[in-house]
Nucleic acid binder design. Structure first.
Lengths: 213, 213, 213, 213
DNA sequence: TATGAATGAGGGTTCATTCAT
DNA sequence: AATGAATGAACCCTCATTCAT
């Protein structure tokens, strides 16, 4: 965690430092990231940096925590959405809402992506907490009779989140394209991709385009 | 590619170098990985290293290629399995067979995992080639009438592979636990997780709280 | 150019570094010169060196520029001397004055000597500028009727400067001996060495086209 | 000096080694020159090199000596030319003849140029011997009454040779241009450049043996 | 004699961190 | 608290030479 001097800084200066760090760690791994680059971009003296943070790792963890919290924090409308919609709708909608947040920077997702290969215990905890919000919704939806009771909630969440990150990373500037793919993926998990017997699909007279409704 | 000197080495020595490199690159990104550490672990003089490899990148690419080939190479029974089974069975069975291969080391998967965040063009190619094997099977299964024609093959493959890597990485020493989760995930994609008959769920005008039920 | 840190150094320390570098580059070509040797002789830590200079080339060019400026800078009395004396007197006198300058170190000439074989564009420019001062004087003296109009100014300057450097280099510690030889060489260029018609210059009634055979 | 094994080599192979070394040392200073490059260009194994030469310096000195001897060796017609012509004609003519020699490679002159900054005692000796041929001719011409008795022979030779090397180096591919400038320079030394009484010598239509007198 | 792998000192450079002002 | 110079370990890589076969 930053030293208290960091929090005594003017918001403007603190922001400069934060943004510079964000950008550096979004584009470089921990050891590739350069303190020199950060202080240069933040336009602060080298000595000052060590007034604010104990060392490189201190800054890094602070960044991760901030980013993770951003992901973990329920969105404005999440509460009300959650009331009626199922977990899948919640994920779709909150993901959309997330990208519409003004203070969410593209770097956040890059860093979140890098967290995946991170073995740091602290990071693991953050990741787990983030997943828990959704596993809880899944359990609720099971009770609601919307989701098969024997479906493993954790697996569902992991599947969606790992795909989501990956896909974002590959589509990078094209958020709309990414959101569309995410929708498709979630739909597959919901409905399955096999043509068949389950779901009563295939039962005579019942198909995708059947007349019920 | 290594120089020919490398291949003239005794199997024991070559193994020492390969393993040391494997371990280093499994636990560090390219720029974090240290040649010094590798030669120390392999117990070879610094000069010798450069007798075997042109430079750090040369070693790295060699490792990647080896790992990628290991993943890309069709397994013993893959051919015959593919004949009758659907793509999902193929994935399940080949993954199992893969882990039963004696020469597959845990580091292989770590490195494969790191490839995901790699922007190197060469790596991208490898990744793509690896995915293509399965997208083709999916297209085949669509024609067989096993998979919904409008399901995007690429998304399916990405979903499975990103989940697979991630899950392996988290379960690390427990391969059996990992394989079980992979099965479950694949089943979910196959069958879907929602309770219900239809597939119209989520379609515009049809929502969770529709009059059914 | 050195970083500003270098110029903030105490004169003593800056001198130590400068002298060490001077000596190294006076006795070695660019690629032969060793930063390690320089910092050892200057007794500064390796890291400090790179606090003062961007890299080896930075130091080298700084040295060259310093040396070149020393050579290019008009001497105290050059201006007034130039007024009346011919180019040859100017060269003789300024060369003498140059060696009387206290801050001129023998290494300067060694480095200047090495510049002769340097193909670096920057060096070429310096060399050219240095020569131009004298070619201009020669052209002036042609107009004054002191020098034959068809004598190639550039050749004269090259002849004197290449001889001068060479001779200094060979006589090295004996500056007086060198100066004497330079005088003789210049006189030869002025008057020629062949036995002929001239050389009773100024004597009434004796000219080029006199009747002696 | 090379080991005897070197001289036992086939002329073809020996030539390959010599040429490769020549090229390397013509384009690089001693420590910049790379044995690796030489054996690669000569297409011989590394171990073999050390069968032929004790070390890098051994090869270098051998090369220098060979080159120096080439410069020192009187040319075919030098003897007869020397009989009647003065030293300046001899220099002009032999320089021309030198460049017409088939076995003289451009690299010879580059290496000769590099010898100038060489402080090696052995090289100094070679250089001196080379100069001596001409100082002797000058002394002879003094006795012949062609050259002023008080002109220092060594200075004359140094002036011409230092200019010659320098000029060749700068004009490099243009040998004709270089030879013309050399002629001019020599003429200046002969006749002088100051306007005196004579000095129409050398002007078109007016030569040493003009009709005057 | 021929070979080419083995060696390690040395090269230039970077960088997080400390410290004196 | 603010500064920026000082530091040295670590980085990747090159190379002449030696040595075992």
């Amino acid at each position: 965690m930053p030293k208290k001097t960091y929090f005594h800084l003017s918001e403007e200066k603190r922001g400069r430092i934060f943004d510079a760090a964000l950008q550096e760690f979004a584009t470089h791994s921990f050891s590739e990231a350069s303190i020199n680059q950060i202080i240069k971009n933040a336009d602060i003296p080298k000595g000052s940096f060590y007034q604010y943070f104990a060392n490189k790792e201190d800054l890094y963890l602070y960044l991760l925590e901030t980013v993770a919290n951003e992901f973990a924090e329920p969105l404005k409308h999440e509460q009300e959405i959650s009331q009626e919609a199922d977990v899948f709708e919640v994920i779709k909608l909150t993901t959309r809402e997330f990208f519409e947040l003004e203070h969410i920077k593209p770097e956040y997702i890059e860093i979140r992506m890098r967290m995946e290969v991170d073995t740091n215990e602290f990071i693991k905890k953050i990741r787990k907490a983030s997943a828990e919000r959704y596993t809880k919704l899944i359990e609720r939806d099971k009770e609601r009779g919307l989701i098969k009771p024997d479906a493993d909630a954790e697996i569902i969440v992991n599947m969606i989140s790992s795909f989501s990150l990956n896909e974002y990373y590959r589509n990078k500037p094209d958020v709309q394209g990414y959101l569309k793919k995410l929708d498709e993926a979630i739909n597959m998990i919901k409905e399955g991709v096999t043509v068949g017997q389950d779901k009563e699909i295939g039962k005579p007279g019942r198909s995708n385009n059947d007349s019920r409704g």
